[in-house]
Design a protein around this nucleic acid. Structure first.
Lengths: 227, 227
DNA sequence: CAAGGAAACAATTTCGAAAACTGCGCCCAC
DNA sequence: GTGGGCGCAGTTTTCGAAATTGTTTCCTTG
């Protein structure tokens, strides 16, 4: 869980390796199912084997890599079945979190949603450079927006789970062609969700959110090169 | 996630250390919030510092221990607030899993529930030795029974989350006095749940399950020595 | 020619020690 | 008397090498 890791000022090599590995896996630069040899990784990230081993162990605990005793690590495989399972589970969990948020959220929460949407909308997603360079900024804002919706659910545990599912889903999105998302106007969907949330219309908000994820899943399924 | 770890025939020292650490934390033999010095742990478990470090990193990823950069590890603190959050979240997730199981479960699933209940009921919980020795067998059967209820939910991801929450809850239970559970006749509750499940009465089953967890939580809260 | 087994090879896992970092007490200047 | 650096002890983190495990290859044997 993310909350179990207090990020101090100084960073250890293990944490750097963890971050870079996670980025490379989520970003699709390390293929699903591919073997992660320590020698290869030490060259790639320029860190010794102990920090790498720590990073891999952390990743194995949250499902990003698989660990086989005495046979090393590999990137978790990606399959159409797992993707649909992922999306299904995500819809269940986020429905709960969203309903709880709408029920318990105060004024500060509302304002948080508003601000997060605003920041997201300012960044026009459809500019080509951002698709190509993929600096993660849009992704960060997107994640922050979705998190803001759920943030008043009053369960950090549930939020951690949702964050894990978000990362997994993001990996599938990045595995499929970026171009596949060009025709989609996510901002409209995000605005609709925002409005329903601020109206405290839980049923409507949940329905929109689920549709939002369903579409994402279908695009990834259709365009993704999965096993 | 448990599914990310394929247990081969041979076990590594790191896995052994992981298991023993987990047991000691869940079993309450390592106090919440206490510092986990490597020197202490190497003596306790008779393994080198590398395997221990791997075990601690895995545990930090699923919330059993906290990691602070350059300042080592400590057992995750336990608080009344976290316990109620845990139970709340667990009720949400298991409600979903149970409803889905009841909806999709086939005959094999029904039989699995029946068998798991049978095995649990055979082991009479109230014998004193088992409270004291605490060999985990009853706990294993108990866990297997609860898992069998949810096993047809068709989402291993959700099952993994539920398993994590189960372990966390178990820790709180073990932190409070064992005697506190003596007066409780859990078997009756388990049978009632089983019957509702086999009748495919989702509403009733969910209500019983939630009550089951609520009672567990209240006992732990009342008798536990939490911060 | 196929099957079994031993030896060489490749990769992972573990160890012991060195390096880096934190926390704390101490001293000195102000 | 107070505050800010300096160095020491204890701990964590990292490295490089050794030990272990798994895999392949090649030779022997039936």
């Amino acid at each position: 869980m993310a909350s179990a890791t207090a990020t101090n000022g100084r960073e250890t090599l293990a944490s750097i390796a963890y971050q870079r590995l996670l980025d490379d896996i989520v970003g699709g630069r390390l293929q699903p199912g591919s073997k992660l040899r320590l020698q290869f990784l030490t060259e790639r990230y320029a860190v010794g084997n102990s920090p790498l081993r720590e990073a891999l162990n952390r990743l194995s605990a949250n499902g990003m890599v698989q660990r086989e005793e005495n046979r090393g690590f590999r990137v978790s495989p990606a399959s159409a079945e797992e993707l649909s399972e992922l999306i299904r589970t995500r819809c269940w969990l986020e429905e709960i979190a969203l309903r709880e948020s709408i029920r318990h959220g105060d004024a500060a929460w509302e304002e948080g949603v508003l601000v997060a949407y605003h920041r997201l909308s300012k960044r026009n997603r459809l500019s080509d450079e951002e698709y190509v360079t993929f600096d993660g900024t849009w992704e960060d804002l997107h994640h922050a927006y979705h998190l803001s919706l759920l943030s008043a659910c009053d369960s950090n545990i549930l939020l951690d789970f949702c964050a894990q599912l978000h990362e997994q889903t993001l990996r599938y999105r990045n595995l499929s062609s970026m171009q596949a998302y060009r025709d989609r106007h996510e901002l409209d969907e995000h605005r609709a969700i925002r409005d329903a949330v601020l109206d405290r219309d839980a049923d409507e908000a949940v329905e929109l959110l689920r549709a939002h994820y369903r579409i994402t899943g279908e695009i990834a399924l259709a365009r993704g090169n999965l096993s």
